[in-house]
Design a protein around this nucleic acid. Structure first.
Ligand SMILES: [Mn+2]
Ligand SMILES: [Mn+2]
Ligand SMILES: [Zn+2]
Ligand SMILES: [Zn+2]
Lengths: 154, 154
DNA sequence: CGCTGCCTGAGAATGATTCTCACTCTCTAT
DNA sequence: ATAGAGAGTGAGAATCATTCTCAGGCAGCG
């Protein structure tokens, strides 16, 4: 079995995921490695079904139940972030260092990311005012992206 | 059939809902009236199933499908607001004039409302910066309420 | 009062996610 | 390396909130 030599731009090698899992106390399995790798390569906001489809096509086959289980586990370990965007299914992305929120276009479905540190601060302040200890949050703005806004209200 | 005389504290009478519907171009039916009335009386964050149960118990029976259809319709007309709070089912509340966001306790499930006009402004600004025309948003903070926070981290 | 067309309700259908359980694999300790 | 214990996997069934279907019922308008 010829093994691909260079993994390419992601730079994430099997050994490093193995190490990552060990550090986090996560049992290593090829399925888990493949799921995490696929999430990272997918880029942004992929759903479980699509992830499963891509894995079945290009890599080792991984059961859909395992995809779900693994995503949940990775989320609990802070390696993956889950969002919903007003659809029925959840979407996943790699949880990188920086937190961000989302602008969801109601016309074309595009999801744009943004950061606004001042909002995060005010959230924290608002929470404290109510004696609430915030661990996480979700902020989504729904409306029309630049392209769709121009099309609808010229 | 003896009819209840005074509707009590809500102050919303049949005639006024009829008028409200007419003004909005909504066809009046007793089912729709009952659903809206039940949402208002429920107070906060009730789900469709519970609404259906209460209607079946105390008022006229309304089919579950009709409850869902009506909630969706009322939402489109801005009379009802929908949220999700990380659960599977949606929750509904009367859409009153003032907008608010939510603090969701991960321990006891309590949902507290808060307003922070400065956040709303910053959201608008962030959206504009990306050429995005925001129509609505959802902001939820997840963590521990005062009572649960004290219990867990004394 | 009598159409016309929207509204309703019971049950079936849908669809994303979770569960089940027999089997397999990882990890750790020999 | 090897074996045993326990955690992970996968196919399919189950769950369950929500939507769909369609036959029968009302609302609104003349
Ligand atoms: Mn994102
Ligand atoms: Mn609320
Ligand atoms: Zn768009
Ligand atoms: Zn609490």
């Amino acid at each position: 079995m010829t093994r691909q030599r260079a993994q390419g731009r992601t730079g994430i090698e099997s050994r490093s995921i193995r190490r990552l899992f060990r550090e986090k106390g996560i049992v290593f399995t090829t399925q888990r490695e493949q799921v995490l790798r696929a999430v990272i390569e997918a880029g942004k906001h992929i759903d479980a079904e699509e992830l499963h489809r891509r894995l079945s096509a290009s890599r080792q086959r991984v059961g859909l139940a395992t995809v779900y289980r693994t995503l949940q586990m990775l989320r609990e370990h802070g390696l993956v972030a889950e969002s919903q965007f007003g659809e029925r299914r959840h979407r996943y992305e790699q949880a990188e260092g920086r937190h961000h929120d989302h602008l969801v276009c109601l016309a074309c479905g595009k999801v744009q990311e943004f950061e606004e540190p001042a909002i995060e601060q005010l959230q924290e302040r608002a929470a404290r005012r109510h004696g609430f200890a915030a661990l996480s949050h979700r902020l989504e703005l729904y409306g029309y992206c630049r392209a769709c806004g121009r099309r609808n209200t010229p």
